[in-house]
Design a protein around this nucleic acid. Structure first.
Lengths: 221, 221
DNA sequence: GCAAGTCTGTTGTAATTCCAACGTAACGGA
DNA sequence: TCCGTTACGTTGGAATTACAACAGACTTGC
């Protein structure tokens, strides 16, 4: 395997597992390495999810499309993050979402059974791995809850302020950048891009915030 | 402890654990039993989440309120279900939601540390418990994703059809009942109750579906 | 039986959003 | 430089929703 371990070591999946332990563990998990060009499909909706991914580099997005073709970004995945693991461990029959590369990306795939079934070589790590997975999935759960909180607001303005306030809080600063362009942010919040742009303009004119491209700053009241 | 074990045995948390193993395991987990009257608060927003709940009887709801008092039901919890476990295992500092009893209810609370830290008496069950938790949290994750799928539709009609179709699929029949009254369904879907009632009336008049109280039936095209 | 409260469906109006179309700016390649 | 592409902002009309108010059906308690 000719990929860098740096993203792997930082991944929350291997929290509490030293670098020396990582290599033999990986050998036992039998990961499969893949590369994807920007725009390529990483996992197709309808597949039977047996393996989850660890993103090594680039960016992938979890996307849901309804039967009218309306796109909805459920989450964006960065290096070190897992994806599709909830569908593996909930034993879903068909993947209800798609995974697409938002940039040239590298990923490692691990079979769910390899993690949860005992194995002579890695038994010592299994409970730690599963606990890490539990923590990761719980965090994602909370993030989904946050998204629901944003999108359940009634107006575009309230959705924007809810989202931007949360981002400012995460960044620990009133100035921060967001990982979306306008269209992606509109998809995430479930609103119309043009209406959102207009609302952003009004908020700027009212002095509530300022922005330049993906950089925002919330002003004090 | 003077409560019935029936809901406990059925809980997915104890999948793969026999009844004989359950009693000593429970003794080690040191659960705390509580009763709640309908409408009572089970967990308050802002609490530090150190213990998760198993509902024994009744019904509780996970509720989020914004600063304008708009209520949003994130999920409804029935006997055997866990609640608040994602906040415990994501090590959140403050509970971002409230838990309220939708009916007279009984619940068992278990400290998160008791499950994940090794213990002489129950080590044999820990990996199974944690795996069960992983599965449960993954399923909830998928359910949240489903809710997002419903609420991200643009119109009330599409939200209703998306939700009702999913319920029919779960029930394995075109006739089914839903666990919400109209106000709760409107809260869940993030729409206005009266507008939703009107849309349901139109769908009935068009022959798309029929309903009586919480019982629905989807008609063929 | 009666009263109070709850749940549901209906309606009209005001407010908001969606949608399509267009103009501008920035960027990269031929 | 010219052209094509992409991202962003703006606008006006059509469609949808929120909101408030009300009426009827149904409980629940007295």
């Amino acid at each position: 395997m000719n990929f860098s371990f740096s993203s792997l070591k930082r991944s929350a999946l291997f929290n509490g597992i030293s670098e020396g332990e990582l290599k033999p563990l990986l050998a036992c998990l039998a990961p499969v390495f893949s590369r994807y060009q920007k725009g390529a499909s990483v996992l197709l909706p309808g597949e039977t999810p047996t393996r989850f991914g660890i993103l090594l580099s680039g960016e992938v997005r979890i996307v849901k499309e309804d039967y009218f073709g309306n796109r909805c970004i459920l989450s964006s995945v960065g290096p070190g993050d897992l994806f599709a693991e909830t569908f593996v461990f909930s034993e879903a029959k068909a993947l209800p979402v798609g995974v697409v590369a938002a940039a040239d990306s590298e990923a490692l795939f691990i079979d769910g059974h390899r993690v949860v079934s005992p194995c002579k070589n890695t038994c010592a790590y299994h409970s730690r791995l599963i606990f890490n997975l539990l923590s990761i999935v719980s965090v994602k759960n909370v993030e989904l809850t946050e998204k629901i909180e944003h999108t359940s607001r009634k107006t575009t303005r309230e959705k924007l302020l809810s989202y931007l306030s949360a981002q400012a809080e995460k960044a620990g600063s009133s100035a921060f950048t967001i990982p979306f362009d306008r269209q992606a942010l509109a998809d995430y919040l479930g609103v119309e891009r043009s209406a959102m742009s207009a609302e952003l303009g009004r908020l700027r004119d009212e002095g509530v915030l300022s922005f330049h491209k993906n950089a925002f700053e919330l002003k004090k009241n």
